[in-house]
């Protein structure tokens, strides 16, 4: 019973997160402007991080947690530097 509940919940959750990633990617492709794409990239990173976290629960392996943390850090740095680029036209001043 508990196996069934967890499997069903994780399957649905991963499906929803995958759909969320597709929607963010779609917004990233259609834009229309650069800041829309960067915002969509940020949302995509968050969804990917949660997806990896869901994989961790699914496999019962805590190593996935570290991977999720790394994705979160990379997403933060990427979005900040891209936002900085939009603002000034250069990343390093």
């Amino acid at each position: 019973m508990n196996v069934l509940i967890m499997q069903a919940a994780l399957f649905i959750a991963q499906l929803m997160l995958a759909l969320a990633m597709i929607l963010c990617t779609w917004r990233m492709i259609i834009g229309p402007r650069a800041q829309d794409r960067v915002l969509a990239l940020d949302a995509l990173y968050v969804c990917a991080m949660l997806q990896v976290l869901a994989f961790g629960v699914r496999t019962g392996n805590t190593l996935y947690f570290e991977a999720a943390l790394v994705i979160g850090v990379l997403g933060f740095v990427a979005t900040v530097s891209l936002a900085k680029f939009l603002m000034r036209g250069e990343v390093i001043e």
């Binding site: 019973m1 508990n2 196996v3 509940i5 967890m6 069903a8 919940a9 994780l10 649905i12 959750a13 991963q14 929803m16 997160l17 759909l19 969320a20 990633m21 929607l23 963010c24 779609w26 917004r27 915002l39 969509a40 949302a43 968050v46 969804c47 949660l50 869901a54 629960v57």
Partner: peptide, 25 residues
Amino acid sequence: WAAIVSAAFILLGAGLSLVGAVGVA
């Protein structure tokens, strides 16, 4: 009980993320 609570939280989290992505799109 832990399976039910944990599954509920995971579904809530994933569902809200999906709604957020729908909003982005």
